[in-house]
């Protein structure tokens, strides 16, 4: 069976520190405003019954990606390993994918006039390495692994912990999984 990559993020361990966001930019030599990866802080409740959740956001490598469907030139592809990729050289900069993604995960580069986003650093994965957002996370709250391999850490965690996917109502079938209590 072919590999199918998924990202598992333990919300019980995310401290909202944004190291993943800075690591992503720095290791891809992106500008500060190119948020391929970021953390949203969600505050709910009234003092003193207040909760804050840190929600890491990046491309979910959806099984049914609305960006792919929206691209008029087929610049976006979903690989056999589950990664959704923008083929930059084919991108015409129409920004339909940016509007189509319900997660706001695609970042338009106004300098290069191209769409860009997280692709789980597929190059590194294929070389057996983890992306910088994973290796630079101070609490090891996230990892990428093979969902088809029942022995992989991501599969083990999904088998033993409660989890949710971001905004399932869009029917995109995200491959990012948030571990909950």
């Amino acid at each position: 069976m072919n590999k199918e990559y998924g990202m598992v993020i333990d919300l019980q361990r995310c401290i909202g520190c944004q190291s993943c966001a800075v690591a992503c930019k720095s290791h891809h030599q992106l500008r500060a405003d190119q948020d391929w990866c970021k953390i949203r802080t969600v505050e709910t409740g009234t003092f003193p019954q207040v909760t804050v959740e840190f929600l890491p956001l990046q491309c979910n490598q959806c099984e049914n990606p609305s960006c792919l469907a929206a691209c008029p030139v087929s610049a976006i592809v979903r690989l056999k390993n589950g990664v959704v990729l923008i083929q930059t050289e084919k991108c015409i900069g129409c920004r339909r994918c940016v509007s189509a993604c319900p997660y706001g995960a695609i970042v338009f580069d106004f300098e290069k006039h191209k769409a860009g986003k997280c692709d789980f650093c597929v190059q590194k994965l294929e070389a057996g390495e983890q992306p910088p957002c994973v290796t630079c996370c101070p609490t090891s709250c996230r990892m990428v692994g093979d969902l088809h391999d029942p022995e992989s850490q991501v599969s083990q965690l999904l088998a033993t912990r409660n989890y949710r996917v971001p905004e399932p109502q869009y029917g995109t079938r995200p491959h990012c999984f948030y571990l909950e209590k």
Binding site: H28, D119, C121
Partner: peptide, 13 residues
Amino acid sequence: HLDFSEIGAGSGN
């Protein structure tokens, strides 16, 4: 459903 080897670069390194 392309294989990664058919595509190449991705976000690059």
